[in-house]
Each structure stands twice: as C-alpha cells, then as structure tokens.
Amino acid sequence: MAHLNVAVSEEAFRRSFELLQRALVFEKADSKDMGAFTAGYDVKAHLEGGNIDFRADNSVLIDSLDLKWDRLKFSLGLDIPEICVGGGCINMPWPIPDICLPRICIFTGDPDVSIAPDLSSVVAQELSLAARFTVRYYDASLPPPSPDLCAPLRLDPLPDHNQWQLYLDPEWIDLDLFDFPDIVGDLIENALTNAVKALIPGGWVRDVILAIIGGIADLIRFILDIPDKIEEWLNDLFNISFGLLDLIGQLVGEFLGRCNPVYRLDDPLEIMPASNGLIPVRIPVRNLAAGVNDVELVLQADVGA
C-alpha cells in the first residue's frame, strides 16, 4: 500500500478544466515580407467547450475542444508594379504646337494597398486529443536541456532542486486545419478590389490602365500568385507559410506533454519551514505514480526512509 494516496474524481477534474480553460488565453502576432506582398497576423484565442473522459485504458480523452478566436486579424499589403500612362508627345506640323499627354502614374507606393480584416467571427477550430498522465523526475544535478525547446512555452522556470513532475502527455492531437470558408475568400477579394479601384483615377486614364492590366481581379491574382480560389491560398498561407497550425498543434503537444507539468512535487518536500535558525524539515518523496480509470485520477507516493 502506498503511503500517500490522492484521488480526483472525473467530475471534479472536468469542472476544474472548465474553469481553467476560461483563464487560459493564447496570443501571438507575426508578419512576413514575401516580395510582392506582405502578410501578417495578430491573433488571440481561448479554449471553450470540450468534454473530458477518463478511460479504463489509463488515458484521458479531451474531445471537441473549441479554439475560439477573440481576434484573428489578417493583414495583407500589396506592392503593385507601378503603371504609368500618358507623357508622350505627338509632333505636329508647324505652326501647330505638339500635343503632349499628361503622364499619370499609379501604384507608386509600397505597399500600395493594405487591408486588415478581423476574421474571428467566421473562423473556428476544434481540438481533440488523447493523453496519458506521465510522471517524470527532474534531477537538478544534471545539466539543463540544450537546446531548451520548452523555453518559450514554460510557464514557470526550471526548478533549482529535484522535483517530481506530472505531465498530461498527448498520444495524439487532432486539430482542424485552418479551413477558411468561401466567405473569407470573397471578403478578402472584395476588400482588395475596392482598395485598388480607389487608387485608379477615373476617365480615360482608368480605361487605359484597365486595358493594360486586364481587370483588377486578374491583377490581384497575378500578384498574389493565386492559382485557384483565394480561400485555398489563405489556408496555405496560414498553414504552410506561417506554420500557424503546426505551431498550435506543436504548442499544445509540447505545452502539455513536455514543458508544463500539471502537478509538481518537490523532492525532498518541505513540511516544516525554517524558523529561528533551524533548518527546514524535508521528507524524501519516492515512487510517485499516476493513473486514471473510468472514474478518477489516482496519485500515489511513498515517503522515503
């Protein structure tokens, strides 16, 4: 029989998880210059819903946990090649003066067009994962990990003393791709088209420029190198160029399974603090073990001799 037993019911774990997910917020921003255009994101998200199920095979299933975006700002800046019309002169016979057309250039800025729609209301992701509680022993006498992949994810610094650490180590993570719906593609395309239209003056110049570029939509697709639908291009941009999906999937896995124990127990464990010059009383902790069954999480430990 273990010296110490602590059990947490599935229901208590579920309620604690519900409370904690409200308090946990993910926030990140980045941008990239891709030559003809710059793209960036500024996102903030939190977890919502989901169901926790303790299973008889010693694993925990977290099912359909929603990643709700409080802010999913996508910024896009286009640097359209400069187009100039007019400026030439027609030499007329004397005494008629030469006829010179005014020179008009557009798309002279960098970027020429910028949009930053907030897509938080039309995009949502869902996370499911199965994980096992894993106990690891942190030995402070060993050199710290190098490179320390957990450094940016760790909520608390590495301890300077030995410690038992309990992780919720994911076995698999299922995170929906950034699958932007058609509405997002249309939203971006319209915003870009309107922004470009506003840059082109009216009258004969407009006709000349449109004749040159063959339509604004075609121009935008050419610049962004969009082969088919703009929403597919957006998906690739977020999932591959930014790697935001991989980042989130990896973050969840590393955050839970490697970097942030859900429970820590110092070894030796201080049970009486130092006082009046007397040393603190510490007890060695041995054989920390964790497991789940259908109804509860059970932690067990021994007191060392």
Binding site: M1, A2, H3, L4, N5, V6, A7, V8, S9, E11, A12, I271, M272, L278, I279, V281, R282, I283, P284, N293, V295, E296, V298, D302, V303, G304, A305
Partner: peptide, 28 residues
C-alpha cells in the same frame, strides 16, 4: 472508487506518518 462520495480523496497510512515522524525527529 476512492471518490464515490467526494470530489477529492486523500489518505496517508500509518507507515507514511511514522516515517515523517522519524524525519522530523532527525531534522529537529
């Protein structure tokens, strides 16, 4: 189950407490 009638259950057995007592006696 340990938690049939509660949210959290905790127990310590006599050998564990006696070991803790020995540690206290040796350190204080």
């Amino acid at each position: 189950a340990f938690t049939d009638h509660c949210s959290i259950f905790a127990s310590v057995n006599e050998e564990g407490i006696n070991r803790v007592a020995r540690h206290i006696m040796r350190q204080r």
